[in-house]
Design a protein around this nucleic acid. Structure first.
Lengths: 110, 110
DNA sequence: CGGCATCCCAGCCGATACTG
DNA sequence: CAGTATCGGCTGGGATGCCG
């Protein structure tokens, strides 16, 4: 489990730190939708991400036990990512947030 | 409504941009709990925030129409903040996230 | 009381190139 | 295919001081 430099002020603070960052929400969401995704698949889905950021973000999610990483020792290499149980528990939150986001986007377009 | 430099990749991305940042989640949550809060009250509640960040964050939330700002033109000045309807729609999700956070914190303590 | 102005820094994030 | 390595920029955020 990742250690945080200074103690979170409350559980809301704590939770936001774990899913904050530019890509974490989307990665969790896409992993939920597809169940299991390979590295390259994630890279294609998050069109704007660099390999560095993708790896870094995945490692953070892994350290936080929101995502599981499974390496197949073969040639060519193959690595699969999927949500952990803890990660899955966040999905309802992200799902509702997404609905809210959709609604707001509709309002802007009008 | 605030404009975002580059288009959000999807509604999850969009939503996270609006409630991301170090303090936004907590401010929304506290405003919900207390209904109406004054500037100084928020400052005391978010013990670790600087006045600059508090003002800046509140302005962003206001521009995003999640928070309403009401100024009383008196001496000494008085400013009250409360959630807008759009902001209130986010509360159930933050509540869910908070529960998740509480649960995780319990697990760490054990 | 509720800010704003200024200066400054860390660390998040990006671009590019290379590798087992 | 699934990453590292390196360099560097930008901006979110901190510290301090002043103002109506």
């Amino acid at each position: 489990m990742k250690k945080y430099p200074d103690e979170p002020a409350c559980s809301v603070d704590y939770a936001f730190r774990r899913i904050g960052g530019k890509y974490k929400g989307r990665i969790l969401w896409y992993l939920h939708a597809k169940n299991i995704m390979r590295y390259g698949e994630l890279r294609k889905t998050l069109t704007d991400i660099t390999p560095k950021m993708l790896t870094q973000t995945l490692r953070e999610l892994e350290a936080d036990e929101l995502v599981e990483r499974k390496v197949y020792h073969e040639v060519p290499p193959k690595v699969e990512y999927k949500l952990t149980e803890i990660g899955q528990e966040l999905i309802p939150f992200i799902a509702h947030l997404k609905e809210w986001g959709d609604k707001q986007i509709q309002k802007i377009k009008k």
